[in-house]
Amino acid sequence: MKRAAFTNRWLPILLLVPQISIIGIFFYWPAIHALRSSFYLQDPFGFSETFVGFSNYASLFNSPAYGRAAIFTVCFTLLVTILSLGIALLLAVKADKVVRGAKTYRTLLMWVYAVAPPVAGVMGLILFNQSWGPIADLFKSLGWDFALGVHYYDTAFAMVLISVWKQIPVNFIFFLSGLQSIPKSVREAAMIDNRSTAGRFWDVTFPLLAPTGFFLLITNITYSLFDTFGIIDTVVKGEPGNNPMTLVYKVYVDGFRGNDLGGSSAQSVVLMVLVLAMTVFQFRLVERRIHYT
């Protein structure tokens, strides 16, 4: 708040009403509703419900399908995060270094930000098409009998590759702007002290990029968990079957396809706790974040 603030009594409330009422109706109410449903068992026609305590949670944690989805989600998140951060960092370092064509490279590497995830999924379906997909053909010529939607790990591979492709631009933009905010004087001092490019990168540039990296780590985990929904839904063509799926996708499948309201709500609550934990973690990181400027 500013020192010289207005003292009007009703205007600020009026200004806040639209935002707060939308949050109340479309955020809090559904969240509370999900919390409540997670303790109930609904009959399939939605006529009655019985209080069952923690039994939805118990059957969730005892379900092998949920365990498989959880393990897949962890592996998927790790792979997507590490690969897209790594590739983007390499590209950002190079794009920061070159002089000629710098702007063109930047544009070519960031425009994919605007591609909708399901459209990325459609491209994946063509690239991995079983009869003539270019990438599937490449693997077949190497002796790997690639079959999207049939073999569990092949489908997982396609999901990871498409998700990495879609996430590189965001990471690239943040890394590049992080690199460009390193003062010239620091770079020049490093040049004098350390003649090796690699040494300079690991001793000076990398630590200076650490705050950006931490921030991106959280962003990428959130992306892998939630924003890949469109990619996964397109790749499995809405037919989960034996395919790998993330926990977020499972909430949707069990709730909408399976009509298991209680179980789906329990999954939602588990995810809310997960997001809460991540946000707290992020804030502790931000508090400790070192500023070099």
Partner: peptide, 24 residues
């Protein structure tokens, strides 16, 4: 208080409250 109410929406992505939101 208003700030915190707005802030907590970050904790509730659409994907985790999708069914009840649809019903509303």
């Amino acid at each position: 208080f208003a700030f915190w109410i707005i802030f907590t929406t970050l904790l509730l992505p659409l994907e985790v409250r999708i069914l009840p939101s649809y019903e509303i």
